[in-house]
Computed example of a mutant assay.
Amino acid sequence: MKCPYCSAPDSKVVNSRPSDEGGAIRRRRECLSCGRRFTTYERAQLEPLMVVKRDGRREAFNPDKLLRGLTLATEKRPVTPETLRAFAYGFEDEVGQTEVSSEEIGRKAMNFLRPIDEVAYIRFASVYRDFDTLERFIEEIRGLKDG
């Protein structure tokens, strides 16, 4: 496994254990070159979930991409990385289909964030729904307060 810090090609496994309720194996690795540690996840990939983009293109679902968006929305908020990781990496199993629209992914992510942290929800919604005016932003916050 290539080291994400120094790009050295060799690392050793320090610890392995089941993760995501047995759906993956979490491995702690140590780079043989720089000595830094990092975590990898190994999971079976049967048939990849395909994401249908707004312009009609299709691409394989990437949980890291979803995790990146959730992480940005929850930056400096009291949401644990483990909570986000569990959602992002469990998303494919939850959907139970072979195709999903990017809109559906955004809706599910907002439904996930709303009860956890309202500020993170608004941050994610502002990007997902592409707020172009202050009024649209205020309207969403009012809906959050009323709902």
Rank of each mutant, 00 (worst) to 15 (best):
G96H: 04
L84C: 08
V95N: 09
E103V: 00
Q45L: 13
P78C: 13
L84E: 06
S102W: 00
E103K: 01
F61W: 07
K53H: 01
T98Y: 10
L46C: 12
T40W: 01
P63H: 03
R43K: 05
N62I: 08
L46E: 14
T83D: 11
E82Q: 07
R43C: 05
D93P: 14
Q97C: 15
R43S: 07
L49D: 01
R107T: 02
A86D: 08
K76R: 10
E75K: 14
M110A: 04
G106M: 02
R58S: 07
G106A: 02
M110S: 03
Y89P: 10
Y41M: 04
P48T: 10
E59M: 04
L46K: 12
E94M: 14
V52K: 00
F87I: 08
R43F: 05
A86E: 09
L72D: 14
G69A: 10
E94L: 11
R43N: 06
D93S: 15
N62R: 11
D55N: 06
A109P: 04
A73Y: 08
G69S: 10
R43L: 10
L84M: 06
T80A: 14
A88N: 11
G56E: 11
R107E: 05
L72C: 14
T40M: 00
E82R: 07
M50I: 08
P81F: 14
Q97D: 14
L49Q: 02
L72M: 15
E104G: 03
D55Y: 07
L67S: 02
F87V: 00
D93N: 15
V51G: 00
E82D: 06
R107D: 03
E99D: 11
S101Y: 01
T40G: 00
F87A: 00
G106C: 02
R68A: 14
P48Q: 11
T74L: 13
L72Y: 14
L72V: 15
D93W: 15
R58N: 04
P48Y: 10
V100I: 08
K53E: 01
G90K: 04
T40A: 01
E59R: 00
Y89F: 13
G69Y: 05
V51W: 00
F91P: 07
E99M: 13
K53T: 01
T71D: 13
E47G: 09
R54S: 03
P81T: 13
K108F: 05
D93T: 15
G56N: 10
S101I: 01
R68M: 15
Q97M: 15
E59P: 03
L66H: 07
T40S: 06
R68T: 15
E75M: 11
L46G: 12
D55I: 05
D64F: 06
G106F: 03
K108C: 02
E75H: 12
T40D: 01
V100H: 06
T98Q: 12
E94C: 12
G69M: 05
A44K: 08
E92T: 08
E92L: 05
M110T: 00
F91I: 01
A73S: 09
T98D: 14
